[in-house]
Design a binder for these strands. Structure first.
Length: 911
RNA sequence: GCCCGAGUGGCGGAACGGUAGACGCAGGGGACUCAAAAUCCCCCGCCGCAAGGUGUGUCGGUUCGAGUCCGACCUCGGGCACCA
């Protein structure tokens, strides 16, 4: 083989790895273990460049760790339940199961050519009954442990499709598929008690040192701890049972600024009032009609209704506040009731203005901090505080007016001392609703028995399998209308009973798959021995889009699995290190029609962004560089975009009837200018998708792998460019050509003049590439590989030294480009497979140079440099530095005030 | 609104407080070739013939020395958001 032929080469070495079973994970007590995991894919049917980047990064880690002597687990599976399969069945017919398994087969076939070091014997899909049956078993255990419960919850209900919709599926208050107005409906749903772990999930974030700070922050914000005061108002004129009204506030220091109380439309008191008052009933119904989506809430106007009930201020029995029902109060945070302090809360202010309520500042205006709402803007409603109230604000801390944290803490202390309230820690995190009225998910393994109530399935009956004979020709849950499936018997009393027809949220499936990989075919959810050996995941890699939900649910699940005996204690934080990789982007090409005489569109509107709506595929675009004076049309096109003429990358091509602008000489001639419209995540609608399969077909997997690692730091987005891929391919060709050249060298004299230099370069490359990989700086590791290759290409070392250096190159390249690395390794006389070779270790002695070059600065500006032996005493160095003629020239006889020598680094002369 | 993060050549990006721009792309020049492709060699922040000056979003500070540390600001990106 003399030409670089990736297709043949890659197939050959993949077969060799398979035969040697190199990637089979084995529990080996003699070795330390290393578990590398990339977030498993949804089987959409096609792999994309994002997958390539994600799995290549994991593969680099897995292959490096294996070479470094670890027993590596690097598995792959499929997050296979979910709506797209059902949507496909509804749109195109067929069965979700066939669609899913067909896609899995397709994607597996696309992934294999990438040469990933995956142990495919551990593969599973979450829609395998062997998997979801074990999930059902854990559900039953969690139910027994009190981690699962049922409650009524308000959901988005699509009345046409007859299903619950996620907030993201509600667009402008309508169902995304049916376009029907969404209703807020109260349904009985299953919940995981993740809120039991709010404090722990928050506190444990501190221990996740190898997680990105950003992700930890996002999770902390999501959990949303707050410290505040809970107290109860005494009510006047409320129905029986509502003698007090508990409220929660994070701003107890503003209690003296209260001007109203408000309750949620879903508050028990509101419900009680609604029963006897049609006006209130109508108002509450109106509030509920608004969806629960973020958009709906954002645009909704603040509305309230005075209930006529009054509450007594806890610190002033003569002071009464009105109680409103208000649409902006959430039932499931705090107590579902608040006191309103318009002077120090934007929402309360808006509400107070609308309903003419007083605005009372509890801080003297001249000492108000910028963080508080300006009272001046509050309008005529500003009410000065009574002197006894000022005394309260000042009084709770010995007379000094306090603000911020100190004031809040003092107010809580005051309330506790006086006995009217207590400090409470609240969390934003709510319990995880998992019921879905869908077919393609894991059936919830419970039975509704008329006699016994809700009864968990007997484990012997698991898995509760999804029936195959279902139809998608009508809306609603196919499980619900299946003729027989839901008819069953009660596992407890044996009477006729109804099976639960809801399935679990697909996030449940992905909350424990990492644990299942440690014993993927076991007849229990996990096997303690295996979990104990392989857990935790040492390195988890995936997209930042899973920073909150998936990772938080997994952290909860690991705790629940420990509590129910399915994971060891050490696995409650399942991911030791997390890396969130960036996306793969590509330029977007958009076209504009240009006429040669006017520089305007045919309708005479100036060339501008408003008409550039058509997207072009990369292959439809001819890159056109601006050389010399741009044509007038091009000038105006550029000007219209606000782009400098010097920026040659702004316009890439002329499409259709002109090859370039200079051919556009005839008046009235039309052409189409194509602009680069920034770079964005690859998507079909933007026509900027590059298919990994076509890249592998033209360049091979090694090129695709190298490129996605090379151009940008892994956590940042990388832009796929044709020229970059081409350049990578050329580089790999160069490496292969070098290998052929070295193999062809005459055997004769074994020693060359460059032997020592090459050995040093190899040692340096080992140190630097290893550091790059260990530090997740693959782009830097690759830069060092380029440098080492350049050194090799220019070396005049003898054959044995060249071969040895090339073997080092092969080893260092192997994690990134494993196929060509094997070929070079074999050609250079390496033993066995490079995939099984030990990682090279740099000889420390070769890493230190005997002489060092020291730059000399004068007053911080670099003026000269000297070369000195590395161990030369500082006094010597100083002498040589001052004797240097360039230094003398700049000193011009002035006395040296100070001389700083940083050994091995730099010299600074201060004059 | 609240909370984070980032600003370095034409581009992607390097740089324990110590020679700013490694490495790659794009660009320029040359060799080889009948020619082209491929390959190889050299140049490549900006101003300047040069000496040199200048330069890491802006302004200020600390330091012998600042892209890096501190303060203020500007711009862009991300997350959360009727959470009381």
């Amino acid at each position: 083989m003399s030409r670089y032929d990736p297709a043949a080469m890659e197939r050959h070495w993949q077969d060799a790895w398979d035969q040697a079973q190199v990637f089979t994970a084995r529990r080996d007590p003699a070795k330390p273990k290393y578990y590398v995991l990339e977030m498993f894919p949804y089987p959409s049917g096609r792999i994309h460049m994002g997958h390539v980047r994600n799995y290549t990064m994991g593969d680099v880690v897995a292959r490096t760790k294996a070479a470094q002597g670890f027993s590596v687990l690097h598995p792959m599976g499929w997050d296979a339940f979910g709506m797209p399969a059902e949507n496909a069945a509804m749109e195109r017919g067929g069965h979700p199961k066939d669609w899913t398994y067909g896609n899995i087969a397709d994607m597996r076939a696309q992934m294999k050519p990438l040469g990933l070091s995956i142990d495919w014997s551990r593969e599973f899909a979450t829609c395998d009954p062997e998997y979801y049956g074990q999930q059902q078993a854990m559900f039953i255990d969690m139910l027994a442990a009190g981690l699962v419960y049922r409650k009524n919850a308000v959901v988005n209900w699509d009345p046409v499709d007859m299903t619950v919709l996620a907030n993201e599926q509600v667009i402008d208050g309508r169902g995304w598929r049916s376009n029907a107005p969404v209703e807020r409906r109260e349904l009985t749903q299953w919940f995981f008690k993740i809120s039991d772990y709010s404090a722990e999930l928050l506190a444990a974030l501190d221990g996740l040192k190898d997680w990105p700070e950003k992700v930890r922050l996002m999770q902390a914000n999501w959990i949303g701890q707050s410290r505040g005061l809970e107290f109860a108002f005494a009510t006047r004129g409320a129905p029986a049972g509502f003698e007090t009204l508990p409220v929660y506030t994070t701003r107890p220091d503003t209690l003296m600024g209260a001007s109203f109380a408000a309750i949620s439309p879903d508050h028990p008191l509101a419900r009680a009032l609604e029963a006897g008052d049609p006006v209130i009933a109508a108002f509450v119904a109106d509030c509920r009609r608004v969806g629960t989506s973020a958009e709906a809430l954002e645009t909704a106007e603040k509305k309230g209704m005075d209930t006529g009930i009054r509450v007594v201020h806890p610190l002033d029995p003569t002071w009464e506040l009105p109680v409103y029902i208000a649409n902006f109060i959430l039932m499931d945070y705090g107590t579902g009731a608040i006191f309103g302090c318009p002077a120090h809360d934007a929402r309360d202010l808006e509400f107070a203005r609308k309903y003419g309520l007083p605005v009372v500042s509890v801080f003297e205006p001249e000492t108000a901090e910028s963080g508080y709402l300006p009272v001046e803007g509050a309008g005529p409603a500003y009410v000065p505080m009574k002197s006894e109230r000022v005394r309260y604000v000042k009084g709770f801390a010995g007379g000094d007016l306090q603000t911020g944290e100190a004031a809040i803490a003092a107010a809580i202390a005051h309330a506790e001392a006086q006995g009217y309230g207590k400090g409470v820690t609240n969390y934003r995190l709510r319990d995880w609703g998992v019921s879905r009225q869908r077919y393609w998910g894991c059936p919830i393994p419970v039975v509704h028995c008329p006699a016994c109530g809700v009864v968990p399935e007997a484990k012997a009956n698991l898995p509760i399998r999804l029936p195959d004979d279902v139809t998608f020709d009508q809306p609603g849950n196919p499980l619900d209308r299946h003729p027989t499936w839901r008819h069953t018997t009660c596992p407890q009393c044996g009477a006729e009973a109804r099976r639960e027809t809801d399935t679990m949220d697909t996030f449940v499936d992905s909350s424990w798959y990492f644990a299942r990989f440690t014993a993927p075919h076991a007849t229990t959810p996990t096997v303690m021995e295996d979990a104990d050996y392989w857990m935790n995941v040492d390195q988890y890699i995936g997209g930042i889009e899973h920073a909150i939900l998936h990772l938080l649910y997994s952290r909860f699940f690991a705790r629940a699995m420990h509590k129910t005996g399915h994971l060891p204690a050490k696995a409650i934080e399942p991911f030791n290190a997390l890396f969130t990789q960036g996306m793969v982007t590509h330029e977007i090409y958009r076209g504009a029609i240009v006429t040669s005489d006017s520089g305007t569109f045919p309708d005479n509107s100036p060339i501008g962004p408003q008409l550039r709506t058509k997207y072009y595929l990369p292959e439809e675009v001819l890159r056109f560089e601006i050389a010399g004076t741009p044509h007038a049309i091009l000038k105006s096109a550029l000007a219209a975009r606000g782009v400098s003429e010097a920026d040659t990358s702004a316009v890439v091509a002329v499409y259709q009837n002109a090859k370039n602008f200079s051919s556009l000489q005839n008046a009235g001639e039309e052409s189409e200018v194509i602009f680069v419209d920034s770079s964005a995540k690859m998507s079909k609608s933007k026509k900027n998708v590059v298919d990994p399969m076509s890249i592998i077909a033209s360049y091979g997997a090694d090129t695709a792998r190298w490129f996605v690692l090379s151009d940008s730091p892994p956590e940042r987005d990388v832009e796929w460019t044709a020229s970059g891929a081409e350049a990578t391919f050329k580089h790999l060709n160069r490496v292969w050509g070098l290998s052929v050249r070295v193999a062809d060298m005459a055997d004769g004299a074994g020693v060359g003049p460059g032997d020592d230099d090459l050995r040093r370069a190899a040692a340096r490359a080992v140190a630097e590439v290893t550091a790059g990989i260990n530090g997740f700086a693959f782009n830097k590791a690759i830069a060092k590989l380029y440098e080492f290759t350049n050194t090799l290409a220019r070396s005049d070392a003898g054959k044995p030294a060249m071969q040895a250096a090339m073997r080092v190159l092969a080893q260092l390249m192997a994690p990134m480009t494993p196929h060509i690395a094997e070929a070079v390794w074999a050609a250079m006389g390496g033993t066995g497979l490079v995939a099984q070779a030990d990682w090279p270790v740099a000889d420390a002695a070769l890493l230190v140079d005997d002489t060092v070059i020291l730059p000399i600065q004068i007053n911080g500006k670099r003026r000269a440099e000297i070369s000195v032996p590395k161990d030369m005493p500082i006094a010597e160095v100083e002498k040589i530095a001052l004797a240097n003629e360039d230094v003398a020239r700049f000193l011009t006889g002035q006395p040296v005030k100070k001389l700083i020598v940083v050994p091995g680094r730099i010299i600074n002369v201060v004059i």
